[in-house]
Design a protein around this nucleic acid. Structure first.
Length: 576
RNA sequence: CGGUGAGUAGCGCAGCCUGGUAGCGCACCUGCCUUGGGAGCAGGGGGUCGCUGGUUCGAUUCCAGUCUCACCGACCA
């Protein structure tokens, strides 16, 4: 490819609305341009990287036995009504009507469409297992699109759906996809973790997220330093608690704590550790149900865990009025003793066995000391509702401690079970001629998001440092002085030779000063760069720059093509 | 949807408080010059100052409304 004939509109200045580094660099490198909030044009260079990654995904999907197809973006409302998600999905589902007033939506995901196809076409146990995938544009009307391709409203996704005769077979399909995902992200050279995750609005019985580690990641994850346990913090379990053996001796006592509204204030004021206090929170469901949650003072609530325990559709911090109605107290002095209303009291498992602790007295400026569970107040249920922190003991092994990371979710695999097949009545006949429900799994990879995540993980002050497997070009050839015919001829020869051995090369033949070319080449992240200048040529040499290491090699002209070919082939090898 | 901030040339910004010919850097066009890390000189083009209304002789500037965008929370590949 001739740079002068191609289209790479780089910019020097960072656009003011780009916050994270990958967004800034993709904009500056001329890979993407914004059309509307969360909606982007993929410019030629950006598309090349996207396609590179798609092909890796495609190869691994095919290898894992999945079959490619393509479903439409526009989907009829009826299917969504049938699965129940038309009402459930909310505003993220972009809905509209056609000229006949029939309702449609833009597909945010394709469980309904694929299940509809399968229910019509798969009739026998002999046709399974089967797994369909597509690489296609999705639309989700996100509340807050941000970070460029990281969270767009329209985005490219690989989604796969597996269909099996029973739960055990579905587990096997799940594992195949899990392994394919491991290979995919490995091949891109990404530093990532597969973590246990909540199933969210897709539903189903269990799931793993694939997280690229990056400080700018929107998710917090933990992993054990000695076993393989890793989970999204939303999901991460606290280790089982063993009850303390303190005996109850001191009587409950009310004390004045003027203006001490936070645990930190109260603990300091009464001179106790915050671990010897109980934090009381009140939550409300969207239908107005209330619940009280108790945690050890130095712990944080995991709202998702509480929500899942309660089986609520939504969980909200209770309003001051709601809190007053059930406790009779202003915020800051809440506790489980002397409630005005009979509401469930859910306590974290660690609260079990907490003796002689400090907690709110449901009265302005008053707390209790020496409060003890069981003697002074009752708890409806003890469950794990706290957020784990770095250094916690691992819930799965004896000796491990949890480490905490930030991650970008680039892939997610779900075991769906029969959620959609039941709703849409997707059944098959087993060997006995008996009708059975199909078991499903679904598996997604954010294509643009992965490319963005790769940039997030691979860049320096000069720009992107693409891993070779997803770089838009493997190599560039920079002619230092385009007016020098000897330089141009030598550069062109190298360029053509590289192309002939299958290297994707960008020939920077622009009539620009060398500095401009070097800056642009660095910015757009070309992994290898050959610089052809008159000084080097006089000795029969050119320069080979390796973007990732910063190495600069002086290479004999005749050897450079072979060297580049070797470097590229080595990076593309995947012996799995 | 709630909280914060911003809309002035393709990009990054100043001007507005105190109303009176709309500016700077980069980019772009022409010429000269230059060629190993975003050169230099000279000349040039490009704006209904987000939109609507009000106040005023006169509004980018003051007032009201409205739209859009970005950032912080819930959603998610």
């Amino acid at each position: 490819m001739l740079y002068s004939r191609y289209f790479i509109p780089t910019v020097k200045e960072t656009p003011s609305d780009a916050e994270v580094i990958s967004h800034q660099l993709m904009l500056r490198a001329g890979m993407i341009r914004k059309l509307a909030s969360g909606i982007y044009n993929y410019l030629p260079l950006g598309l090349r990287s996207i396609r590179k990654f798609e092909n890796i995904v495609r190869e691994e999907m095919d290898k894992a036995g999945a079959i490619e197809m393509l479903m439409p973006t526009v989907q009829p409302a009826e299917l969504w009504q049938e699965s129940g998600r038309w009402a459930f999905y909310g505003k993220e589902l972009l809905r509209f009507k056609d000229r006949k007033e029939a309702e449609f939506c833009l597909g945010p995901t394709h469980e309904e469409v694929i299940t509809d196809m399968v229910r019509r076409e798969i009739k026998s146990y002999r046709q399974m297992p089967i797994n369909f995938y597509q690489i296609q544009g999705k639309f989700r009307d996100e509340i807050r699109p941000r970070f460029g391709l990281m969270r767009g409203r329209e985005f490219i996704m690989k989604d796969a759906y597996s269909f099996d005769v029973d739960s055990a077979a579905a587990d096997f399909s799940y594992e195949k996809m899990y392994n394919a995902y491991m290979r995919i992200f490995d091949r891109c050279g990404l530093n990532f973790r597969a973590v246990e995750a909540d199933t969210g609005s897709i539903g189903g019985s269990f799931s793993h997220e694939f997280m690229v580690l990056a400080d700018s990641g929107e998710d917090a994850i933990v992993s054990c330093d000695s076993c393989r346990y890793a989970a999204n913090v939303e999901k991460a379990e606290s280790p089982l608690f063993t009850a303390s053996s303190d005996t109850i001796s001191e009587p409950l006592q009310k004390v004045s704590t003027p203006e001490m509204k936070t645990i930190v204030d109260v603990a300091a004021f009464l001179d106790v550790e915050s671990a010897k206090t109980i934090k009381t929170l009140v939550y409300a469901s969207d239908t107005g149900e209330l619940v009280m949650a108790l945690l050890r003072g130095d712990h944080e609530l995991n709202e998702l865990k509480l929500k899942n325990h309660l089986g609520w559709g939504e969980i909200l911090m209770a309003t001051e009025e709601q809190i007053f109605s059930c406790t009779g107290s202003p915020i800051g002095f809440l506790g489980p003793i002397g409630l005005k209303m009979d509401i469930p009291v859910i306590a974290d498992q660690v609260v079990q066995g907490m003796m002689h602790v400090v907690l709110g007295a449901n009265e302005k400026d008053q707390h209790f000391i020496n409060a003890s569970v069981g003697r002074d107040f009752e708890v409806t249920r003890f469950v794990d509702i706290r957020t784990v922190t770095a250094g916690d003991a691992c819930p799965r092994c004896e000796s491990g401690k949890l480490e905490m990371w930030r991650g970008i979710e680039v892939g997610h695999v779900f075991k769906l079970g029969t959620k959609y097949s039941k709703a849409l009545n997707a059944t098959y006949l087993d060997p006995n001629g008996k009708e059975q429900i199909i078991f499903m799994g679904c598996y997604g990879i954010g294509i643009g998001r992965t490319v963005a995540a790769a940039i997030e993980q691979n860049h320096d002050e000069n720009g992107i440092i693409f891993p070779i497997p997803i770089a838009p070009f493997h190599c560039s050839v920079v002619a230092v002085n385009t007016k020098d015919s000897g330089v141009m001829a030598a550069a062109e020869e190298i360029y053509l030779k590289l192309e002939s051995v299958g290297i994707e090369v960008l020939f920077d033949d622009r009539d620009e000063r060398p500095g401009v070319k070097f800056k642009d080449n660095d910015l757009i992240g070309i992994p290898l760069r050959i610089v052809v200048g008159s000084k080097g040529l006089a000795e029969g040499k050119v320069e080979l720059n390796i973007r990732s290491s910063g190495e600069v090699l002086s290479v004999v002209v005749d050897d450079v093509v072979t060297m580049v070919k070797q470097l590229v082939d080595a990076a593309l090898v995947h012996n799995m």
